[in-house]
């Protein structure tokens, strides 16, 4: 059963300046008794979130309000400075699309590698299915990603990242580069993925997207939870309209 439980979690993010990366400087600082004060900002401040299976949580807030850091904390990238984090279920963080791409490799190899990183076996059928979703030409599979335009690259990466369902899905600022046609298709797939995942947390500036996808929206400000609102389910009328369009 997938659950996420954050209790009074804080994260102090150390800001390493050029000097903080220097061992010599640090040793010297010890010798001359220089106060080695580390600059720290509190990126996540006393956040409590309880999510059971079925929760769809949107994170909103201005740049630097701690959305991405909170997602990384849930993914286990950053250890919390205080508080308790308990997560059960298989977490699939899709925070940056570019993660793990090697532009010199051909598309097919990149897909295979990305699948392996997420613990899946890249079979021919899976890769073909992913490629079909991108709607790119067959022969482009054999081209290095360097030759792809940013939109095409995004298609490939999106298709790969969303090929398999997850228990807990963490998404950060998605669907910004691709053209309108693909964006629509991608959102549909995302909705599909979201409907299969037990828990979804999406960080985005796109308020309409959050309202369509989430059951509650948490507004963050300077790492604190400024407000949390529940979203009423979309009216059945608009739902029908959407279905017709699809």
């Amino acid at each position: 059963m997938a659950t996420i439980s954050l209790r009074n979690v804080c994260l102090d993010y150390p800001l390493y300046g050029a000097y903080d990366f220097s061992l010599k400087r640090r040793l010297l600082g010890h010798l001359i008794r220089e106060k080695g004060e580390m600059r720290i900002i509190r990126a996540v401040d006393n956040v409590t979130i309880e999510a059971e299976a079925g929760a769809r949580i949107g994170l909103a807030g201005p740049n630097g309000s701690g959305k991405s850091t909170l997602l990384r904390l849930i993914a286990g990238v950053y250890p919390p400075s205080s508080g308790r984090v308990a997560i059960s279920g298989n977490v699939v963080p899709l925070l940056g699309l570019n993660a793990g791409v090697n532009l010199d490799f051909i598309a097919e190899d990149n897909i295979a590698l990305l699948l392996r990183i997420s613990g899946r076996k890249p079979t021919r059928a899976v890769i073909d299915e992913i490629w079909a979703f991108t709607e790119l030409e067959e022969r482009m599979q054999r081209l290095p990603l360097r030759m792809f335009s940013s939109g095409m690259l995004m298609r490939v990466l999106f298709a790969t990242a969303t090929a398999f369902p997850a228990d807990i899905l963490l998404l950060d600022e998605w669907l910004s580069v691709v053209d309108e046609h693909f964006a629509e298709k991608a959102e549909q797939r995302l909705q599909n993925l979201v409907s299969q995942a037990a828990i979804v947390i999406i960080a985005s500036h796109d308020q309409p997207l959050l309202r369509r996808t989430c059951t509650s929206i948490i507004n963050l400000d300077h790492g604190r939870i400024a407000s949390a609102v529940a979203v009423e389910p979309p009216s059945p009328l608009s739902f029908e309209l959407r279905e017709k369009r699809a």
Binding site: R72, V77, V91, P93, L94, L95, G96, A99, G100, I117
Partner: peptide
Amino acid sequence: ASLIRDRAL
């Protein structure tokens, strides 16, 4: 860096 921070490896 991107794999560590974005894919939590």
